[in-house]
Measured scan of single mutants.
Amino acid sequence: MEQATVKWFNAEKGFGFIERENGDDVFVHFSAIQGDGFKSLDEGQAVTFDVEEGQRGPQAANVQKA
């Protein structure tokens, strides 16, 4: 698992990007966020996640709020 920071997340559209420590951004979809209830992330929030290869490149999976 990697630890990184949420760059931005649009709760209405259900997706955003996580900024990795190496500077690369990773796409995150609300369905990858672990937990119950409304799944959203806040800008600047610390998260841990795995990286999977998606249809359009790397994307976050198993996202957990740190």
Rank of each mutant, 00 (worst) to 15 (best):
Glu53Phe: 14
Phe15Cys: 07
Gly54Phe: 06
His29Asn: 03
Ala66Gln: 12
Asp36Tyr: 12
Glu19Met: 15
Phe27Asn: 00
Asp24Phe: 11
Ala46Glu: 10
Ala61Phe: 10
Gly44Ala: 04
Ile33Lys: 00
Val47Glu: 01
Asp36Lys: 13
Glu12Met: 13
Ala4Cys: 08
Phe49Leu: 07
Arg56Trp: 15
Gly23Phe: 06
Ala60Glu: 00
Trp8Pro: 01
Ala11Asp: 06
Gln59Gly: 04
Ala11Trp: 11
Gln45Ala: 09
Glu12Thr: 13
Ala32Cys: 07
Gly37Leu: 06
Phe30His: 07
Lys65Ala: 11
Gly35Trp: 10
Pro58Phe: 11
Ala32Glu: 03
Gly54Asn: 06
Asn10Trp: 09
Thr5Val: 13
Met1Leu: 11
Glu2Gln: 14
Gln34Phe: 10
Thr48His: 09
Glu43Ser: 15
Phe17Ser: 01
Trp8Cys: 10
Ala60His: 02
Ser31Leu: 08
Ala11Pro: 12
Val6Pro: 00
Ala11Asn: 10
Asp25Thr: 12
Lys13Val: 08
Gln59Cys: 07
Val63Ala: 03
Asp25Gln: 14
Gly54Gln: 05
Val6Asn: 01
Ser40Ala: 10
Val47Pro: 01
Thr48Lys: 09
Gly23Asn: 08
Asp42Thr: 15
Ser40Gln: 10
Glu19Asn: 11
Glu43Thr: 14
Gly35Val: 09
Gly44Tyr: 05
Ile33Trp: 03
Thr48Trp: 14
Lys65Trp: 09
His29Met: 06
Gly35Phe: 09
Asp36Glu: 13
Gly23Leu: 08
Gly14Glu: 02
Asp50Arg: 14
Gly54Arg: 08
Phe30Gln: 04
Gly14Asn: 02
Gly23Glu: 08
Ala61Leu: 09
Met1Asn: 11
Gly44Glu: 03
Gly16Phe: 04
Val6Trp: 00
Ser40Gly: 08
Phe38Ser: 06
Phe30Glu: 01
Lys13Phe: 10
Gln3Met: 13
Glu52Met: 13
Thr48Met: 11
Asn10Cys: 12
Gln34His: 10
Lys13Trp: 11
Asp50Leu: 13
Ile18His: 00
Lys65Asp: 08
Glu52Trp: 11
Gly54Ala: 07
Glu53Trp: 15
Ser40Trp: 15
Phe17Ala: 00
Glu2Asn: 12
Gly54Val: 05
Lys65Arg: 11
Asn22Lys: 11
Arg20Pro: 03
Gly14Ile: 03
Gly57Phe: 04
Asp42Glu: 14
Gln34Ser: 10
Ala46Leu: 15
Gly44Lys: 06
Ser40Lys: 11
Gln55Leu: 14
Asp24Ser: 14
Glu21Ile: 12
Gly23Pro: 03
Glu12Ala: 13
Ser40Tyr: 13
Ala32Ile: 04
Gly37Tyr: 07
Glu21Trp: 12
Ser40Arg: 11
Lys65Met: 10
Val47Lys: 03
Gly23Lys: 10
Phe17Asp: 00
Gly44Asp: 04
Lys65Phe: 10
Ser31Phe: 06
Ala32His: 05
Asp24Asn: 12
Thr5Ser: 08
Glu21Met: 12
Asn22Leu: 09
Asn10Leu: 05
Phe9Ile: 00
Gly14Trp: 04
Ala60Gly: 04
Val26Asn: 00
Gly35Glu: 09
Lys39Leu: 10
His29Glu: 03
Lys13Asp: 02
Val63Leu: 05
Val26Cys: 06
Glu53Thr: 11
Ile33Phe: 05
Val51Asp: 01
Asn62Trp: 08
Ala32Gly: 07
Lys13Ala: 08
Pro58Ser: 08
Thr5Pro: 03
Gly14Arg: 01
